[in-house]
Amino acid sequence: MDKNMTPINKVSFQDKMRSYAKHPGSLILLILVILAAVITVVTLLFLVGYILISGVPYLKPSLFSIEYNSENVSMLPAIINTVEMVVIALVLSVPFGVGAAIYLVEYAKKGNKLVEVVRLTAETLTGIPSIIYGLFGMLFFNIALHWRYSMMSGAATLAIMVLPTIMRTTEEALLCVPDSFREGSFGLGAGKLRTIFKIVLPAAIPGILSGIILSIGRIVGETAALIYTAGTVTGVAGLMDSGRTLAIHMYVLSNEGLHKNEANATAVVLLLVVLLINGLSSLVAKRFEAVK
C-alpha cells in the first residue's frame, strides 16, 4: 500500500516548487485534488456537526418515555420497534445469506452455470433501490400473502434487501480461510459438513460478523422500503402489527413539521446509532484482517 503513496524520486521542497513554476498545469492538478479532499471532509464535518449542534439541546428525558403521545413525541417505542425489526430481518436473511455463500465457496464446482446466475442476481439485488423493495414488499407480503401493514412484512422486505450484503461478505470471509485448514480436517477423517461447521465457519466468523453489522446499519437507517410495508403506526408493535422504526419516526416528524425540535433530536440519535454500528463493523473487519 505504501509504495503508492511515496514518490520514488525523493525531491526537496524547493525543487518541487521550482518544478511547479515550470509546470503550472501540475500545480493546478495538485490544487484540484487537494480541494476535492478538503470539500469531502468539510462536508462530512459540517453535516455531522450541524445535526449534532442543532439537535443535542433538545434531547430530553421525555423523548424516551415508554408511551408515545403527541405531547412528548417519545422515540422509545420506535427504538424498540427498530431492534425488533433488526432481529427479525436478520433471523430471516442470515441463514440464507450464509448458506448461499457456503454453497458458492465450498460446494459449487468451477464453471458452474448456476453460480454465475446466482452472482448476477445478487448483483441485481444490490442495485435495486429501496423504494422498489418497498413496492414489492407491499404487493407481495402485504397484499398477496395478506400480512397487511406489519413488522413481519417490513422485516421480510428488508431481509431480501440485505441478503446480497450478507452473501458477499460471507463469501469473501470463507474464501480467506486457507485450504490447509480444510485439508487438515479432511486428513483427520472429518466429513465435509463437519469441516464446514467446525473448522471453516468458526475461522470466518469475524468476516461474517462485519457483514451482519453492516446490514444492521442499513436496516436501522431504512425508510423508503418500510413506509408501505411496516407502516407508520406509533407504539410498540407485535409481529403482525404495523409499527414505525426510528428512521420512519424521524421521517414522519420532519414531514408533519409540527415537532421540529424533536425531529432534530431524533436525527441526532439516529445518526449516532448508525455511525456507531458502522464504526463497529469496520473495527470487526479490521480485527479480521489482522488475524488473517
Binding site: 469531502t40 462536508t43 445535526i51 425508510t223 428512521a247 420532519s254 448508525v274
Partner: peptide
C-alpha cells in the same frame, strides 16, 4: 473512515440536513 461515514449516514438524515 470519513468516506465510510458518509456512506453510512441514512438517507433520511441527509434529507433532513
Amino acid at each position: 473512515p470519513v468516506v465510510n461515514l458518509l456512506a453510512g449516514i441514512p438517507s433520511i438524515v441527509y434529507g433532513f440536513f
